[in-house]
Design a protein around this nucleic acid. Structure first.
Lengths: 121, 121
DNA sequence: TTGACTTATCGTATATCTACGATATGCGAT
DNA sequence: ATCGCATATCGTAGATATACGATAAGTCAA
C-alpha cells in the first residue's frame, strides 16, 4: 500500500496478509467460486459472468495469479485458469493457526468487571 | 476501493471480501496474533509491540473493529480489545466453503493435452 | 481544577487499488 | 501475409489505504 512498512513485519504475517489481500475483492471471490465449480475456466467465460470489463477481469486474474492461487494453461489463444488447490490449502492452514478458530472461546473469562463500563461502544 | 462496483456482486461475496480485506495487512495479522495469545490487550500495549505510530495502530484497530472481528472493553482511560471469536469462526466457515479446501484436488484431471503448451507462464 | 496519561480523530502526503478504453500481442484459420 | 478472435498490458482518472504528527477528548489521581 502507501508508504507501507510491511518490511518491518515477520515474513509469515506479510505472507498471510498478501493472501488475504488477494481475496479482498468480491470479483476475486467470485472468480474463485467459478473455478471451484467448473474446475477450469477461460478468461472470456469469466468476463461473461462478471459485471466488469475484460481488462478489469484480466487484472483481477493477474492479482490472483501473483498470489499463487491459480494455475494457467494456455490452449491456443485462450487462457484457461484453474485453482492451485495445494497453495490454497497451505494458506488456509496458516490461516487457521493464526486465527485460532479451533481454540476455546475466552469470552467467559472476559466478563467486564463491575467498575468498567463501556464508553465509546 | 476506487470507483468500486461491489454493489454489483452478491452480498456473501462482498462480505467475504470485506473480511479478507480486514486481514490484508501484516499489522492487523499481528494484532490478531497478540489478541490470540494474550486474550485481551489494550491499545497502548499493541503500540509497544508494533513498529508503527499510535495513530496508525488505532486506525488498524478501527479497521478490525469495523469488520466485526473485535470486542472492545473500556476500563478507565484504556481501551482493551479482544477477539470476537464467534464472528471469526463464522467467517472462517464461509471461507472454507468458498475456497473449498476440503474438496478433491482436480489437478490430475487437468493434465495439459499434448497439443497445448504453455506460452506466457 | 489541574496535570499526567490513554486513545481516537483530524489533516495531510503519498502510494496503491479499481475500473475502463485503447492498444499490443499471440494464435489459428484462410 | 492477413484476418478475426482472445487476452494481456498501457495509460489514466478517481477513490481508497497507509502512515504520521498534531490535536481533541476522556479518565484518574492529586
Amino acid at each position: 500500500m502507501a508508504n507501507t512498512k510491511h518490511a518491518l513485519f515477520p515474513e509469515e504475517q506479510v505472507s498471510l496478509a498478501a493472501f488475504a489481500g488477494a481475496l479482498a475483492h468480491p470479483a476475486r471471490i467470485a472468480i474463485i467460486g467459478l473455478l471451484q465449480e467448473r474446475k477450469e475456466v477461460c478468461c472470456g467465460d469469466i468476463v461473461k459472468e462478471l459485471p466488469l470489463a475484460q481488462a478489469t477481469v484480466s487484472q483481477h486474474l493477474k492479482a490472483l495469479d501473483k498470489a499463487g492461487l491459480l494455475h494457467l494453461r494456455e490452449c491456443g489463444p485462450k487462457a484457461c485458469y484453474s485453482l492451485n488447490c495445494e497453495a490454497i490449502r497451505s494458506f488456509c492452514h496458516s490461516f487457521q493457526c493464526t486465527l485460532g478458530t479451533d481454540q476455546a472461546d475466552h469470552s467467559a473469562e472476559l466478563e467486564p468487571a463491575a467498575d468498567c463500563a463501556n464508553r465509546r461502544s
